[in-house]
Simulated assay, not measured.
Amino acid sequence: MLPKARYLDFCRTAPDVPVFAQPWYLDACAEGGTWDVVLAEKQGRVVAALPFFQKQKGPFRYVTMPPFVKWLGPYLLPEFRGRLPIEHELMQALIAQLPPVASFKQNFYPTITNWLPFYWQQFRQTTYYTYRLHQLRDLARVAAGVGTGIRRDIRLARQQVRVVHDRSLNEFYRVNTLSFQRQGLPAPYSLPQFQRLDAALAAAGSRQLFFAVDEQDRVHSVAYLIWDSTTAYFLLAGDDPGLRASGAGVLLAWEAIRYASEVLGLDCFDFEGSMLPGVERIRVRFGAVQTPYFYVWKHNSRLFELLEKLKR
């Protein structure tokens, strides 16, 4: 059986494979490249996996992060985590099977705290941060940790907008891309890409859209929540620059948290990482805990590395 077929079977029984690493999610995000996976076994049973996304640029094949995928990296079954000799053995087996590429770049899951086998193979690492709320089922405790300024913004926003879920994907995309236009940046994904992802998430029952709409039927802000068996992720958000003063974006963040707690019954909410000072301050004011994750990379081609540096 081919590795991807075996991985599909593995994901059907593994208890907590993150949504970003599910085969159907990677299928939906693989435009412009292909995804593949390497597997490690114990006694003939798959117990660890490392999915990766490959692209081609001229003669160079390289591993990078696909659109909409915040984290990948090695996944180990729970019974093999935290036991360093076994973790090292399994990770070394995964690394040994990676294809020859010009470069490798991945954001590991925040749950991965051991990248030592990659260090031993001359990979390098930078620590980034995401922000997470834990014990989410106790929503009263979460609410008590929200800063007074955030609570005020939520209260004021409720006076100006209502939260709905039934607007079109096209409307979501329009408002979401306004945030990039305001910063003079191109949208990082196209509407067809977003439609493809949304169709896959909707089929899996793993997403909800949020719209903040006023009495004039204007959409102030949008948010896009996805989830797996353990965690809800604040994947996408955006505001109409002319309507940002309403605070609707803060309200939608809170509504997404409440949805993850009360509707989904999950215990962890991930705002997704940002190293920007302004974003960090807001996440912390929601009571979220700074959580590190590893960006792991390696250049195997000096020429490709040089070309990447010249492109910056």
Score class of each variant (00 low, 15 high):
180 F>R: 15
181 Q>G: 10
182 R>G: 04
182 R>K: 15
183 Q>D: 15
184 G>F: 03
186 P>W: 05
187 A>T: 08
188 P>N: 10
188 P>Q: 07
191 L>V: 07
191 L>S: 07
193 Q>E: 15
193 Q>L: 01
194 F>T: 12
195 Q>R: 15
196 R>D: 00
197 L>P: 06
198 D>C: 04
198 D>N: 15
198 D>P: 02
199 A>Y: 00
201 L>Q: 02
204 A>P: 04
205 G>S: 06
206 S>P: 00
206 S>I: 01
206 S>G: 05
207 R>Y: 00
209 L>S: 11
209 L>W: 02
211 F>N: 12
212 A>D: 14
213 V>L: 11
213 V>A: 09
213 V>D: 11
214 D>R: 07
214 D>E: 10
214 D>K: 08
215 E>C: 07
215 E>V: 14
216 Q>C: 10
216 Q>F: 02
217 D>G: 03
218 R>F: 00
218 R>K: 13
219 V>M: 14
220 H>P: 12
220 H>D: 13
221 S>E: 10
222 V>W: 03
222 V>R: 05
223 A>Y: 03
224 Y>A: 08
225 L>F: 04
227 W>H: 10
227 W>R: 05
227 W>L: 04
228 D>P: 03
228 D>I: 00
229 S>Q: 15
230 T>K: 15
231 T>I: 08
231 T>P: 02
232 A>N: 08
233 Y>S: 07
234 F>C: 07
236 L>W: 04
237 A>F: 01
238 G>L: 12
239 D>T: 13
240 D>E: 14
242 G>E: 15
242 G>A: 14
243 L>C: 08
244 R>D: 11
244 R>P: 07
246 S>Q: 12
246 S>H: 08
247 G>D: 13
247 G>F: 05
248 A>K: 10
248 A>T: 14
248 A>I: 13
249 G>I: 14
249 G>T: 11
249 G>F: 07
250 V>Q: 11
250 V>S: 08
251 L>Q: 09
251 L>W: 01
254 W>L: 14
257 I>S: 09
